[in-house]
């Protein structure tokens, strides 16, 4: 499927066309004893072109599972994911993924890590260098290109991980708790940088986090998943323009509401934690 160029349709007039369409996705794992574990159940989500959508939910509810299915890294038990015009069947150039622990290769320099995808797709050297320069600048990494990941702070590593994905110019970007391993202040800075990049590039982002206020601060829309087997429990539109203030009344209120909804969900009588 990496053969040939994926033909991107000029879909100027059709704003209603979702960029990511998650249709009736189910995933049932088999645990060590062979028993089925229903992770996610009948998930339906449409994400518009250029939209920033966050998925939140309790730990272990199946957020990473859903992301990996959308990324083509994991096969669903049933259902379908469409990204752009194509059904997802394995990974693709159109879908970029940023991982939780940055997953930089420790044996490569920042530069080589960021260029990993371009080198694999045999992009000419000059073009690589030019793009590298742009993305080092965009991610505030200029001057660190010859460092190894072990010589960087957690925040720097995550920036390099994001640069490695964005430099490929994917149609949609999926991020799995990218800021969960960095300290609070760095996280706030990274969030603001992410907002700045999204405002500039207007690319579709599916962002996973367990930090509700992070989701509310970043997103156009927040989707709450219930505990396992998770379904879409609720959905919140955040109609606040960027740049946002973290103390914005509306944002604070909506955060409180989501937290309340989570607690309600977790306290539901049909508790699935004990099987």
């Amino acid at each position: 499927m990496s053969l040939g160029l994926s033909i991107r349709r000029q879909n100027k007039g059709c704003e209603t066309m979702p960029d990511i369409k998650i249709k009736n996705i189910n995933k049932t794992y088999t645990d060590a004893s062979g028993a089925p574990v229903e992770a996610i159940k009948d998930i339906n989500i449409d994400i518009k072109d250029g939209e920033f959508v966050s998925i939140v939910g309790p730990s272990g509810c199946g957020k990473s599972t859903l992301l990996e299915i959308v990324a083509g890294l994991l096969e669903q038990t049933s259902g379908e994911v469409i990204v752009g015009d194509d059904t997802v069947k394995g990974t693709s150039r159109d879908i970029g993924v940023v991982f939780q622990d940055s997953a930089l290769f420790p044996w490569k320099t920042v530069k080589k890590n960021i260029l990993y995808g371009l080198e694999l797709s045999k992009v000419p050297r000059e073009e690589q260098e030019e793009k590298l320069k742009n993305y080092l600048e965009l991610m505030n990494l200029t001057g660190f290109e010859d460092k190894y990941p072990s010589q960087l702070s957690g925040g720097m590593r995550q920036r390099a991980g994001i640069a490695r994905t964005l430099i490929m110019d994917p149609k949609v970007t999926l991020m799995d708790e990218p800021f969960s391993a960095v300290d609070h202040l760095t996280r706030c800075t990274l969030q603001e940088e992410l907002v700045r990049i999204h405002e500039k590039e207007k690319k579709t982002v599916l962002f996973i986090t367990h930090d509700i206020s992070e989701a509310v601060f970043l997103s156009d829309r927040v989707i709450l998943l219930s505990p396992r087997p998770s379904v879409v429990q609720n959905e919140y539109k955040i109609n606040v323009k960027h740049p946002r203030s973290r103390s914005d009344d509306y944002l604070v209120q909506i955060t409180a509401r989501i937290v309340a909804d989570i607690n309600r969900g977790a306290a539901a009588p049909e508790n699935d934690y004990i099987i």
Binding site: I95, W107, M168
Partner: peptide, 25 residues
């Protein structure tokens, strides 16, 4: 596992994955 996922996401072939990821690690 996460390194292998990165290789997959960037569409490395099997052989590329072995030489760029598995062997160095």
């Amino acid at each position: 596992e996460s390194y292998l996922k990165v290789a997959k996401v960037f569409e490395a072939t099997n052989i590329e994955t072995v030489f760029t990821v598995i062997l160095p690690s």
